[in-house]
């Protein structure tokens, strides 16, 4: 970074020019630009530092800056709340309609997504173990599973709504199909992860098929399995929300989003999206934590 000074000076020039142009064109634009570039400069300074503090301070500051800018833009330019509500309005909505949001989360997140995720993942692991003894079936199932995993499976939502009714069962069914194939593919790959030496070792101990599976191959497959499970957490919430667009009882995150569009209650939609974001990251984080506990021996977990 020693010969970057020329680049730095050009950058500074561009920044100052943009600021001046912004202030002349519209003082409001100038304010927004100043805050953004100021925060960026602070961030760049912190980022040069070492240690664990910048690791979380910089992204946090970036997120706060975005929120502040969002609020400022909405306030200064008087953006209509039916186009983009301010973060403060969304926060007020979240605080004001806690019970509704909680009921929606229970309906979509716990009943729809979580049930479907559990059933789908269990079925996929069972299927992977079932085809484990037949390399022929594995060779057939892997490409088909990979192919199906790339398909837009949310499209089966209308069919599932017809079969299982409007309530959470149809959402769980969509989620089951969505999570099944990624988990299956990863689990089948994981069951192959042991090498011949380890299997021979089990054979010299006269271990049965099930003992080998339980003591050696299942633990060895766990890193692969968790990879699939983590992909599935994201898919599960998406599946449950989108399936509600095709028909739902009068509760649920997808229903609330769809209904609020009709009323142009955008703050409610953003509140639901915020809940979905928190729920999605929390679910993913939980699975990642379990992974850390269970596969502590794996090189990818041992480095920290």
């Amino acid at each position: 970074m020693k010969n970057a000074s020329a680049f730095d000076w050009t950058l500074t020039g561009i920044v100052i020019a943009a600021l001046v142009a912004g202030w002349i064109y519209d003082p409001r634009l100038g304010t927004v630009l100043s805050i953004w570039l100021g925060a960026w400069a602070v961030n760049a300074m912190i980022a040069r530092g070492r240690g664990p503090l910048p690791r979380w301070l910089v992204p946090a500051l970036f997120g706060v800056t975005l929120l502040v800018l969002w609020e400022l833009v909405v306030r200064l330019f008087a953006v209509s709340p039916v186009i983009l509500p301010a973060p403060s309005a969304i926060a007020a909505r979240i605080a004001g309609s806690g019970p509704t949001l909680w009921a929606d989360f229970v309906q979509t997140g716990l009943k729809g997504a979580l049930t479907g995720w559990l059933i789908g993942c269990a079925a996929a692991v069972a299927a992977a173990i079932a085809v484990d003894r037949s390399p022929f079936l594995q060779r057939g199932l892997l490409p088909v599973g990979n192919f199906v995993a790339a398909l837009p499976i949310v499209g089966i939502a209308p069919i599932m709504v017809m079969w299982f009714g409007f309530d959470w069962q149809s959402k769980a069914a969509v989620v089951v199909v969505m999570v099944f194939f990624p988990v299956l593919v990863n689990m089948v790959a994981g069951l192959k992860a042991t090498d011949a030496m380890q299997r021979d070792q089990m054979a010299t101990w006269h271990a049965s098929y099930w003992q080998t599976l339980w003591k050696l191959r299942f633990p060895a497959a766990l890193p692969f399995l968790f990879n699939g499970l983590k992909i599935a957490t994201t898919l599960a919430l998406i599946g449950a929300i989108v399936a509600e667009f095709f028909g739902s009882p009068i509760v649920g995150m997808g229903f609330r989003i769809n209904a609020s569009i009709g009323q142009l209650a955008l703050d409610m939609i953003w509140a639901e999206i915020a809940v979905a974001a928190v729920a999605g990251s929390a679910f993913y984080g939980l699975v990642a934590q379990i992974e850390k506990r269970v596969t502590f021996w794996h090189p990818s977990q041992r480095r920290q």
Partner: peptide, 9 residues
């Protein structure tokens, strides 16, 4: 990890 798709409609 966020169901961004919910924003679409």
């Amino acid at each position: 990890t966020i169901p961004i798709l919910a924003i679409a409609p």
